[in-house]
Structures are given as C-alpha cells and as structure tokens.
Nucleic acid binder design. Structure first.
Length: 255
DNA sequence: ATGACTCCCAGTGGGAGA
C-alpha cells in the first residue's frame, strides 16, 4: 500500500501535473493541500476518469484539501471536530482499513503574530482530535503540509532560520507532542540523503541550490509502524515547468 | 535587504505564502 501527500499550490494550475504524477505513481491514496478551489470548482470528473475516488473540501483563494483514493473513503471528516475553523485545512477518511488524515497546517506567518497564535490553537486542537481518532482507528496516518521543520537537520540553514517561522521551539514542541501520541515520522525510520527537503522557495534559485525545508510529513501510528517499508520525497515534480514549491512525500506500507 | 517568485483576486497593485 502506497500513500502520499502533496501541497500542489493551486490545483487549477497543477491538475495536469497531478494526473501525470498519479499515472506514473499509482498510489492507493494521496492527500492534497492548497487546492485553492471552492467546492463547486473542484475538478472531480478528471480525477474520477483517472480511476480514483475523491473527497474534497475547499474555499476561495486560500487553503483547500482533498483525499484521492483507489478505494472509496469511509467515514469522511472535514476539519477538526469542535474547533470551528474558518479555513478548509483538514480531510480524513478510512481507506482499506487505514485512517488517512490529510492536513494543511497553518503557516503562522511570524512568531508573535495573530496568525502564529492561531497556529498554536490549531495545533492544540489537532493533537486532542488525533488522540481521539487514534483510539477509534489504531491504524492511522497523519500526513500533509505541517509547516514545521521538526529539527535543525530539516533546515538548509539552521542558523539563519533559528527562531523563524517553521523553526520556533513552540512549533517544534507541537510536532513533538504529536510524536508523544505514539506517532512516528516515517521519513526518519530510514537512512536518508542529507539535505532532504520537501519545500524550496520559488525565489533566489532555491531549488537549484537545494536550499529548502522539510515541512511536509507522514506520521504513522504504532499499529502501522511495523508495516512501513519506505518513505521518500519525490523531487522530480519540483523540476517541472510551473512547479509547486512543494514536493510529494510517499510512504510504502506492507500489505 | 522591507528584495527575489508564484498564486490569487483584483483591476494597471497588493496580500499571502514559507
């Protein structure tokens, strides 16, 4: 079983790339972030014609998530129950017995800002909700654009980024709290190339210079940990014309 | 360096992203 996450930074722009990627990488499920489409404009027909089921949850201009899967997703949930979020940031469904959660975590803009405070509240609510989900669904995967670089080795220039958004102790403590629920960072279960990133700034030739951050993650529950066979970042789509600034992350689970 | 690029909604510029 293969699962993936990809922040596409506008599905309207990236739909052809997504369909091409799915044809080359027939995953069982992929979660998307930053679709930036209201639900009436979501391109469900093109995805269905490619042989997938899809659930979507979006809004105008910002945010927006989707869950694409070979098998239909059961018990679909949108956003964090009880949190009252105005942004479309989370979608979950049970696919082939695995609870798949895709999230577009708040950016946070800058430490001390209102958006940072919202990010902290959102992460608090997420942790509590994921804990409850884990109790109901021991086989669980939480993946998406976390907008958190968990460690200095996830940052191309840890000195320049120290204390900056994505790298603050507060954000890293929230990431650690998710690990505290028993979740495991699938990427770090394996030896990985140094300087592995999932996002590169559009500016300043950052991709060519491999200056990026690892902020897109796949966390697996204790019940799934033993099934994890591989976890990789696919940099290839970042080389495309008009790429997303994020690369897909893929996890392979034993059947 | 208050930069750089890309996307969106706007409307001949500006906010947000990360």
């Amino acid at each position: 079983m293969k699962l993936a996450t990809w922040n596409v930074n506008s599905l309207a722009v990236r739909l052809p790339q997504l369909l091409g990627w799915l044809a080359a990488h027939p995953v069982d499920a992929i979660v998307l972030q930053e679709t930036k489409l209201t639900d009436d404009k979501f391109p469900h027909a093109a995805i269905t014609e490619a042989g997938y089921r899809v659930e979507w949850f979006g809004q105008k201009t910002y945010n927006g998530v989707a869950l694409i899967s070979r098998e239909p997703a059961a018990d679909v949930a949108k956003n964090i129950a009880g949190f009252g979020d105005e942004s479309a940031r989370l979608i979950a469904g049970t696919v082939a017995g695995v609870r798949v959660i895709g999230g577009y975590f708040p950016n946070g803009q800058a430490p001390g800002s209102d958006k940072f405070a919202y990010k902290m509240r959102w992460l608090d609510a997420l942790r509590d909700w994921v804990q409850a989900e884990l109790a109901r669904h021991p086989q669980l995967v939480l993946m998406g654009d976390f907008n958190i670089a968990p460690e200095d080795r996830d940052v191309h220039d840890p000195v320049a980024w120290a204390g900056q958004i994505h790298c603050t102790p507060e954000e890293r403590a929230h990431f650690a709290a998710l690990l505290g629920l028993g979740l495991v960072d699938a990427f770090r279960l394996f030896e990985q190339p140094p300087k592995s990133w999932s996002w590169w700034d559009y500016r300043n030739l950052a991709f060519r210079k491999n200056q990026g951050l690892r902020i897109d993650h796949i966390l697996v529950s204790p019940a799934l940990r033993g099934r994890v066979q591989a976890c990789t970042i696919d940099k290839e789509p970042r080389r495309a014309e008009r790429p997303s600034d994020h690369a897909p992350v893929i996890v392979t689970l034993a059947d």
